[in-house]
Lab assay of single mutants.
Amino acid sequence: DTLHVTQDGKHIELRGLSEEEIKLVEELLRRGRKVEEALKIIEELRK
């Protein structure tokens, strides 16, 4: 699936995420994380 995010005035499209990963990214962003940080966390969880 694809998640569309706008952060720091930039539109970012995150592709290839599972539904659970999207929920996790959304939660991390709500808690003030940056998109880059959220993606690093997803990458770690995929290992």
Score class of each variant (00 low, 15 high):
D1T: 09
D1A: 10
D1I: 10
D1V: 06
D1K: 05
D1C: 06
D1M: 11
D1E: 11
D1Q: 11
T2R: 06
T2K: 09
T2G: 11
T2L: 04
T2F: 08
T2N: 10
T2D: 08
T2E: 08
L3H: 11
L3N: 08
L3W: 05
L3Q: 08
L3G: 10
L3Y: 04
L3E: 07
L3M: 12
L3P: 07
L3S: 10
L3F: 05
L3R: 01
H4D: 09
H4A: 09
H4I: 15
H4M: 10
H4Q: 10
H4W: 12
H4G: 08
H4K: 06
H4T: 13
H4N: 09
V5I: 11
V5F: 04
V5Y: 03
V5S: 07
V5P: 06
V5G: 07
T6K: 04
T6P: 06
T6H: 13
T6N: 10
T6S: 09
T6V: 15
T6R: 02
T6W: 15
T6L: 15
T6D: 14
T6F: 14
Q7N: 10
Q7K: 02
Q7L: 08
Q7E: 15
Q7C: 04
Q7W: 02
Q7D: 10
Q7G: 09
Q7P: 06
Q7H: 09
Q7I: 11
Q7F: 02
Q7V: 11
D8E: 06
D8C: 05
D8H: 02
D8F: 01
D8M: 03
D8L: 02
D8V: 04
G9Y: 03
G9N: 08
G9Q: 04
G9T: 03
G9E: 09
G9L: 04
G9V: 03
G9W: 02
K10S: 13
K10T: 13
K10D: 13
K10R: 05
K10E: 14
K10I: 15
K10W: 13
K10L: 15
K10G: 09
K10P: 08
H11T: 12
H11A: 07
H11N: 11
H11M: 06
H11Q: 08
H11S: 06
I12K: 05
I12C: 06
I12A: 05
I12F: 15
I12L: 07
I12G: 03
I12V: 12
I12E: 09
E13Y: 10
E13K: 03
E13V: 14
E13D: 10
E13G: 05
E13F: 11
E13N: 08
E13W: 10
E13H: 08
E13I: 14
E13A: 10
E13Q: 10
E13R: 02
E13M: 08
L14K: 02
L14P: 01
L14Q: 03
L14Y: 04
L14E: 04
L14W: 03
L14S: 02
L14T: 04
L14R: 01
L14N: 04
R15M: 12
R15C: 05
R15E: 13
R15D: 09
R15Y: 14
R15N: 13
R15K: 15
R15H: 14
G16T: 03
G16A: 05
G16K: 04
G16W: 05
G16R: 03
G16D: 13
G16N: 10
G16H: 06
G16F: 07
G16L: 06
L17W: 04
L17E: 00
L17Q: 00
L17M: 08
L17G: 01
L17H: 02
L17F: 11
L17S: 00
L17A: 02
L17P: 00
L17C: 01
S18V: 05
S18I: 04
S18H: 06
S18Y: 05
S18C: 06
S18R: 07
S18W: 04
S18Q: 05
S18M: 05
S18E: 05
E19A: 14
E19M: 13
E19G: 13
E19T: 14
E19Q: 15
E19P: 15
E19L: 15
E19C: 07
E19I: 14
E20F: 13
E20V: 13
E20N: 13
E20C: 07
E20Y: 12
E20Q: 11
E21P: 00
E21C: 01
E21T: 02
E21A: 01
E21L: 02
E21F: 02
I22K: 14
I22N: 05
I22L: 09
I22M: 13
I22E: 06
I22Y: 09
I22G: 08
I22Q: 09
I22R: 14
I22D: 02
I22F: 10
I22S: 08
K23W: 10
K23A: 13
K23N: 09
K23Q: 12
K23C: 06
K23R: 14
K23Y: 10
K23F: 11
K23S: 11
L24Q: 05
L24E: 04
L24H: 06
L24T: 07
L24M: 12
L24F: 09
L24D: 01
L24K: 06
L24S: 03
V25A: 06
V25Y: 06
V25C: 07
V25L: 12
V25K: 01
V25Q: 00
V25G: 01
V25I: 13
V25T: 04
V25E: 00
V25S: 00
E26F: 14
E26M: 15
E26I: 15
E26L: 15
E26A: 09
E26W: 13
E26N: 14
E26Y: 14
E26T: 15
E27Q: 11
E27S: 09
E27H: 06
E27D: 14
E27A: 11
E27C: 02
E27N: 10
E27M: 13
E27K: 10
L28D: 01
L28I: 08
L28C: 03
L28V: 06
L28E: 05
L28K: 01
L28T: 04
L28H: 05
L28Q: 05
L28G: 01
L28N: 03
L28R: 00
L28M: 13
L29C: 03
L29H: 02
L29T: 05
L29D: 00
L29P: 00
R30A: 11
R30S: 12
R30Q: 11
R30G: 10
R30H: 10
R30N: 09
R30F: 08
R30M: 11
R30K: 13
R30E: 11
R30V: 08
R30I: 08
R30Y: 08
R30W: 08
R31H: 13
R31M: 14
R31P: 02
R31A: 15
R31N: 14
R31V: 13
R31Y: 13
R31K: 12
R31S: 13
R31T: 13
R31D: 11
R31W: 14
G32M: 01
G32T: 01
G32W: 01
G32A: 01
G32H: 02
G32N: 04
G32L: 01
G32C: 03
G32Y: 02
G32P: 01
G32R: 01
R33L: 15
R33G: 13
R33M: 15
R33C: 09
R33I: 15
R33F: 15
R33V: 15
R33Y: 15
R33T: 15
R33S: 14
K34Q: 08
K34Y: 09
K34C: 02
K34A: 09
K34V: 07
K34D: 10
K34N: 12
K34R: 13
K34M: 07
K34P: 12
V35Q: 03
V35S: 03
V35F: 08
V35D: 01
V35Y: 06
V35E: 04
V35M: 07
V35I: 12
V35W: 07
V35A: 05
E36V: 08
E36Q: 11
E36L: 10
E36G: 07
E36R: 07
E36T: 08
E36N: 08
E36H: 10
E36Y: 10
E36F: 11
E37L: 05
E37M: 05
E37S: 05
E37Q: 09
E37R: 02
E37N: 04
E37A: 07
A38R: 00
A38F: 03
A38L: 10
A38S: 04
A38Y: 02
A38E: 00
A38T: 05
A38G: 02
A38N: 00
L39S: 02
L39N: 02
L39M: 13
L39V: 09
L39P: 00
L39C: 03
L39Y: 05
K40C: 11
K40N: 10
K40D: 10
K40H: 11
K40E: 11
K40F: 12
I41Q: 07
I41S: 04
I41N: 04
I41H: 08
I41W: 09
I41D: 04
I41F: 12
I42T: 01
I42V: 11
I42E: 00
I42P: 00
I42W: 01
I42F: 01
I42H: 00
I42C: 00
I42A: 01
I42N: 00
I42Q: 00
I42M: 04
I42R: 00
I42G: 00
E43L: 10
E43M: 10
E43P: 00
E43F: 08
E43G: 06
E43D: 13
E44Q: 09
E44G: 07
E44F: 09
E44Y: 09
E44T: 06
E44C: 05
E44K: 05
E44W: 09
E44S: 06
E44L: 09
E44H: 08
E44V: 07
L45C: 04
L45F: 07
L45E: 05
L45A: 09
L45H: 06
L45P: 00
L45Q: 09
L45W: 08
L45V: 06
L45S: 04
L45T: 06
R46P: 01
R46C: 02
R46Y: 03
R46S: 02
R46E: 01
R46Q: 04
R46T: 02
R46N: 03
R46W: 03
K47Q: 14
K47T: 13
K47W: 14
K47Y: 12
K47G: 14
K47S: 15
K47A: 15
K47N: 14
K47M: 15
